[in-house]
Simulated scan of single mutants.
Amino acid sequence: MKAVNITFQFQDGQPAQTHVAAEGESVLDVALNNGIQLQHNCGGVCGCSTCHVYVLQGEDELPEISDKEEDFIDRAVNPRINSRLGCQCVVQASTQDLVILIPPQEFLGH
């Protein structure tokens, strides 16, 4: 299995952290497994918008965004063109290193 580095940057000023992800793991999985606060009200099944992140590098290497994910991103706080749900950003064999920006997590999500 291929390992991928995911660098997490934070809008709240925390120092960046880099962690290794294995094929099949999501950005949400890697964040939670490494003590990074990333809300996930639905449990990571693409049923809400709380694990919303910005993909700063490597977006083309992730699975294509689904209509369902796009609908939930529209409900997220401050969605952008590079917005994704962490639960849907799954590392694949072709995935290169990723840089993920985590927005502030002090909110009640949808």
Rank of each mutant, 00 (worst) to 15 (best):
A16L: 03
G44V: 00
P79I: 11
I100D: 00
C42V: 05
F8L: 01
T18M: 02
I73S: 02
M1W: 10
L32C: 07
Q105C: 05
H52N: 07
S83T: 14
V45A: 03
H110K: 09
Q9W: 07
Q105I: 06
T95I: 01
A93N: 09
E61V: 10
N82K: 10
Q92A: 10
E64T: 04
N33M: 01
D71I: 07
C46W: 04
H19M: 12
I6H: 05
Q57R: 00
A31E: 03
M1G: 05
I36D: 00
A22E: 12
V27Y: 10
H110D: 11
G86T: 05
F10C: 05
C48N: 06
G43I: 05
E64Y: 02
V30D: 02
K2D: 15
Q88M: 11
E106F: 07
C51N: 05
K2C: 07
H52L: 13
L56D: 08
T7L: 00
N34P: 03
V27N: 04
A21R: 09
N41G: 14
P79R: 14
L38K: 04
D74N: 13
L56E: 13
H52K: 06
G24W: 05
K68T: 10
Q9H: 11
I65G: 00
V90A: 09
A3R: 15
I100T: 00
H19G: 09
E23C: 06
Q96W: 04
L38S: 06
A31M: 03
D67K: 08
E64Q: 13
T18K: 07
C89H: 01
A3K: 15
V30K: 03
G24L: 04
I6K: 04
A22W: 12
G58V: 03
G44P: 09
L85C: 10
P103R: 10
T18Q: 05
T95L: 02
N5I: 09
P103K: 03
V77L: 15
V27P: 02
V53I: 15
L38C: 08
V91I: 15
I73L: 09
A3W: 14
E106H: 11
Q105K: 01
T7E: 10
